Amino acid sequence: MAGAKLDALLVSHSANVRYLSGFTGSNGLVLMLVDRAILFTDPRYKIQASSEVDCRVQVVRGPLLPHVLAVIKRLRARRLGFENNRVSFEAYQFLKEHLPLKTALDPVAGWVEEQRMIKSDDEIDHIRRSVDLNSAAFERAVTRLRPDMRESELAAELDYRMRRLGAEGPAFETIVASGPRTAWPHARPSSDKLRGNALVLVDMGANLDGYASDMTRMLFVGRPGARVKRTYGAVLEAQLAAIDAVRAGVTAESVDRAARRVLRSHKLDRAFVHSTGHGLGLEIHEPPRLGKKDKVTLQAGMAITVEPGVYLEGFAGIRIEDTVVVTSNGCRVLTPTSKDLRVI
């Protein structure tokens, strides 16, 4: 804050509140001052906050912002930073209308997220355990897969297995799609039955102790034909090339470029319609993004996904995704699940 000449920083995004204070409740604000921090929450979380948080906790009744502003006024803060990409318009208007005239409101989008990009050893261990649990849930659910099962049934089985193994729940809505619907990158599970002689795409992640994992694997119900095998091989080649490109010091766009170069050699690059990956941690999608124009330099300790895919309307979509940790000389793949096309 000193570098930006701020007297205080108001943090409102729940993942950032948790990162800075340890508080996991649904209603909390952190006011960062030069020499201390204060967590504001309501009476529902009094006991919880006292056991989770090591900074000062101020339990208040009613909306939190008026109590934050009371502290700002008492301290005579001249410059208050706020997360302009996270705060609601209503909260912004309230701040503008009720701050003292001599207090400037400064937008500071992405400050905490930038700190969160580099994971501590403890955070990496949390992510690794989430990845392991996610893979174990996948293995257990797949053994119960039946050709007449509905997409929604398989999704429910995957979520159930995550919770049985100790997850707080899925890190995002589990994706299960069969046949031509695999060409929808973010298809929601439907009531359709898994098709015979068709691909099944499963994209799933667990939330364990607050940390997310993310994995995509492909199944085939029946006997895959030559085109399926050829396309799957191309995507796998692209994914391995992208993983090989990951290391501290390279740009995010260079990893994306490595995947696209392979798909271009197979004349599939135009069917790759999203970025190659993203960061993850307390949220399923965090910086950095690994896209065509993303110039962020990768650093050791970043946890990212590598997930190229191709989506061919009327035929199928194929995506392969792992969670990896950037190291000084490469990366460590956390996902233990085989990347072979699994035939059911």
Score class of each variant (00 low, 15 high):
residue 137 A to H: 11
residue 216 T to P: 08
residue 285 H to W: 02
residue 114 E to I: 04
residue 146 R to P: 12
residue 147 P to Y: 11
residue 254 S to D: 02
residue 132 D to P: 00
residue 269 D to E: 15
residue 320 I to V: 14
residue 203 D to P: 06
residue 161 R to Y: 10
residue 37 A to P: 09
residue 156 A to E: 15
residue 311 Y to L: 11
residue 72 I to E: 01
residue 208 L to D: 01
residue 225 G to F: 15
residue 90 E to G: 06
residue 11 V to A: 14
residue 212 A to T: 05
residue 156 A to T: 13
residue 70 A to Q: 12
residue 101 L to F: 10
residue 266 H to S: 14
residue 36 R to M: 06
residue 257 R to A: 15
residue 327 T to R: 06
residue 245 A to E: 13
residue 269 D to W: 08
residue 67 H to P: 06
residue 187 A to K: 10
residue 153 E to S: 14
residue 138 F to E: 08
residue 208 L to C: 01
residue 92 Y to Q: 07
residue 300 A to Q: 00
residue 308 P to N: 00
residue 255 V to C: 07
residue 19 Y to G: 02
residue 312 L to G: 03
residue 122 D to P: 05
residue 206 A to M: 14
residue 111 W to K: 09
residue 47 I to F: 15
residue 265 S to D: 10
residue 188 R to G: 11
residue 45 Y to G: 13
residue 58 Q to P: 00
residue 65 L to S: 12
residue 180 P to M: 12
residue 256 D to P: 00
residue 58 Q to N: 13
residue 107 P to L: 12
residue 23 F to E: 02
residue 130 S to F: 07
residue 210 G to T: 04
residue 116 R to G: 07
residue 284 I to H: 10
residue 163 R to A: 08
residue 336 P to S: 08
residue 290 L to K: 01
residue 317 G to T: 09
residue 144 R to M: 12
residue 60 V to W: 07
residue 50 S to N: 09
residue 106 D to G: 01
residue 296 V to N: 10
residue 260 R to Q: 06
residue 130 S to I: 02
residue 109 A to F: 06
residue 19 Y to K: 01
residue 36 R to C: 05
residue 233 G to L: 06
residue 342 R to P: 07
residue 57 V to K: 04
residue 8 A to V: 02
residue 127 I to F: 05
residue 287 P to G: 11
residue 196 G to D: 12
residue 117 M to F: 04
residue 26 S to N: 13
residue 216 T to Q: 10
residue 5 K to F: 07
residue 85 N to F: 00
residue 194 L to T: 01
residue 20 L to F: 05
residue 109 A to Y: 03
residue 329 N to V: 02
residue 30 V to P: 09
residue 336 P to N: 08
residue 75 L to N: 00
residue 48 Q to M: 11
residue 169 G to D: 12
residue 304 I to G: 00
residue 34 V to P: 05
residue 3 G to M: 13
residue 342 R to S: 09
residue 107 P to Q: 09
residue 333 V to S: 01
residue 257 R to D: 15
residue 79 R to T: 09
residue 149 M to H: 02
residue 318 I to N: 05
residue 327 T to C: 09
residue 303 A to E: 03
residue 80 L to K: 03
residue 325 V to K: 05
residue 202 V to H: 01
residue 96 K to E: 12
residue 280 L to R: 06
residue 236 L to W: 01
residue 89 F to P: 07
residue 42 D to M: 11
residue 109 A to V: 09
residue 324 V to G: 11
residue 211 Y to D: 05
residue 171 A to K: 05
residue 264 R to H: 13
residue 326 V to I: 01
residue 309 G to D: 02
residue 292 K to T: 09
residue 14 S to P: 11
residue 128 R to V: 03
residue 343 V to C: 05
residue 129 R to C: 07
residue 212 A to M: 05
residue 111 W to E: 14
residue 180 P to K: 06
residue 241 A to N: 03
residue 55 C to T: 14
residue 304 I to M: 00
residue 51 S to K: 12
residue 122 D to L: 14
residue 260 R to W: 11
residue 284 I to G: 09
residue 242 A to M: 08
